[in-house]
Each structure stands twice: as C-alpha cells, then as structure tokens.
C-alpha cells in the first residue's frame, strides 16, 4: 500500500512544478460560478425558488460541483493511457512491480490533492464574493457523507477512465469516444445543471448509475437538498459500481494486454 502512497506523493510533487496551470484551473471555478450567477440570475428574476432551489442554494450547488469537477483529473487518465498504449510507452507501467490500475489511480489522486488546495481557495473566495454562505445548510453527518462520496467519486472516475483507456488495446484509436463521453459525463454528474430539474423517471434511472453520486449528490447534501438516507444509498450504489469496475478492469487488462505490441520504442 505504501508504494501507491509514494506514487501519489510523487505525482503531487510533479504538479507543484506547474503553478500557472494549476492557478488557471482554480480560476475556472470562478468563471463557472460567474456564468451560473448570470444565467440563474435571469431565470430567478421575479421568482423566489426553482424546483425547491433558492438563488443562493443554486449558486452553492454550482460552487460544489465546480470545485469537485476541477479536482477530477481522471479524463487525463484515459488520454494518457490511450497515448501510451498506442505509442508503446505503456511498457513502463508493465515492468514495474505494481498494478497499473493502482499506479494510475495513485497518480491521479496525487495530482487531484494538489489541485484541491487551489480549488478550495478559489471556492472559498467565490463563496465570499458571491455571498452564498446561506446556500449551505448541511449538518455534520451530511458533510461527512458528502466528503466520502466526493473521495469515492474521484476513485470511481479514475477507474472509469482507466477502463476507457484500456479499450485502446483493442481498438487502437478511441479519441472520438473520449470526446463524446465527456459531455455526457458532465451532464450525468450534474455539472451542467441540477439533476432534480429533470423528470422523475429520468432521475430515477440516473440514480442507478454511478455518475450522479459523484457530483450531484454531494452538492445536494451540502446544500441541504438531500438527506442522509439518500446520501448513504448513493454511497452504497457508488461503492458497488467502483468495486465492480475495478474488478472488471483487472480482468479486462489481463485479457487485452496480450494484444499489446509495444511498438514505437
């Protein structure tokens, strides 16, 4: 276990080198919130609430999902994996005495930890700037549940993108798929809009999937729009998906890696 912790530390150290990029990513939280403020300000014009959200709660929701999505660097995993498999440099991960899946996981979480520092500062700044403290109304149990969901969500997203990246062994080129699924994931995690605005059958269907529990549910918990029971249910669903996907990834890797030709080196 310690080796993966050191991989995460190493990724963290490597990120520190790129201060400008990290600073700009943190600023993205500000832009997203500014955009939400303008858009929802217009929608809330003359209204007190929309689907149970007050204007302040809506901004608090966007603040949480923006913070969580800026910490989520998992899409880089599928791009890196895909490029390395096609370019032959994936061999680097194969010859080390560690699981490639856990190496990518540790690497991504280590980088996320660094982004989290900046994103948190940006989120706190936004909360003060837009005066949205009133939008948060969660108790300690809900906060803890949201935190667990956020961490498990990051692990799930890395596993998901690792799975997509592994498909390169089979299909060689998966960039179209990588671009296409990005928007779908943003929608399903609630990063575009609160999923509660969708018709109930669609929301029920989405709740069986892992994605809403990655961004939408933690944000709903922190803004007091979802209760602890809902949070715990979501945690169990996400845990099952994560465990299942990681096991599936292991099998997929063992099955597909024999097709690897390691060309280009």
């Amino acid at each position: 276990m310690k080796k993966y912790l050191v991989i995460a530390q190493t990724a963290f150290k490597a990120q520190i080198v790129y201060r400008f990029d990290v600073g700009m990513t943190a600023l993205a939280t500000l832009w997203k919130l500014l955009f939400a403020w303008i858009l929802w300000g217009a929608i809330f014009e003359g209204r007190q609430s929309v689907s149970g959200f007050s204007f302040q709660t809506m901004l608090a929701y966007y603040l949480v999902v923006s913070f969580l999505s800026s910490m989520d660097l998992s899409s880089g995993v599928s791009f890196e994996l895909s490029n390395r498999i096609r370019g032959g440099t994936f061999s680097k991960f194969m010859v080390l005495p560690a699981s490639p899946q856990l190496q990518f996981l540790a690497q991504s979480l280590g980088s996320s930890a660094y982004y989290a520092l900046f994103a948190l500062l940006a989120a706190l700044g936004c909360a003060l700037l837009f005066r949205i403290r009133a939008g948060f109304s969660a108790g300690p149990a809900e906060i803890l549940c949201a935190l667990c969901l956020a961490i498990l969500g990051l692990i799930f997203m890395v596993s998901y993108h690792y799975c997509i990246g592994l498909l390169t062994f089979k299909f060689q080129e998966i960039s179209f798929f990588l671009h296409m699924q990005g928007n779908l994931i943003a929608f399903a995690t609630g990063a575009m809009l609160p999923l509660t605005l969708l018709p109930k059958p669609v929301l029920d269907l989405l709740s069986a999937l892992p994605f809403p529990h990655v961004g939408y549910l933690p944000a709903m918990l922190l803004t007091g729009q979802a209760g602890l029971v809902e949070g715990l249910k979501g945690f169990v669903v996400l845990l099952l998906w994560t465990a299942g996907l990681m096991a599936a990834n292991r099998l997929l890797y063992e099955r597909l890696r024999v097709q690897y030709d390691g060309v280009g080196i």
Partner: peptide
C-alpha cells in the same frame, strides 16, 4: 520523472521494489 529530480524517482523505486 522529467519534472522531478533523479532522487525523487529513486525514492519511488525504493518503495516500488521494497
């Protein structure tokens, strides 16, 4: 690791290989 120093990579290998 290109961004880091050789000692950082050596430290990582120390843990990876136990």
């Amino acid at each position: 690791f290109f961004e880091l120093t050789p000692v950082d990579t050596f430290g990582l290998f120390k843990e990876l290989y136990g």
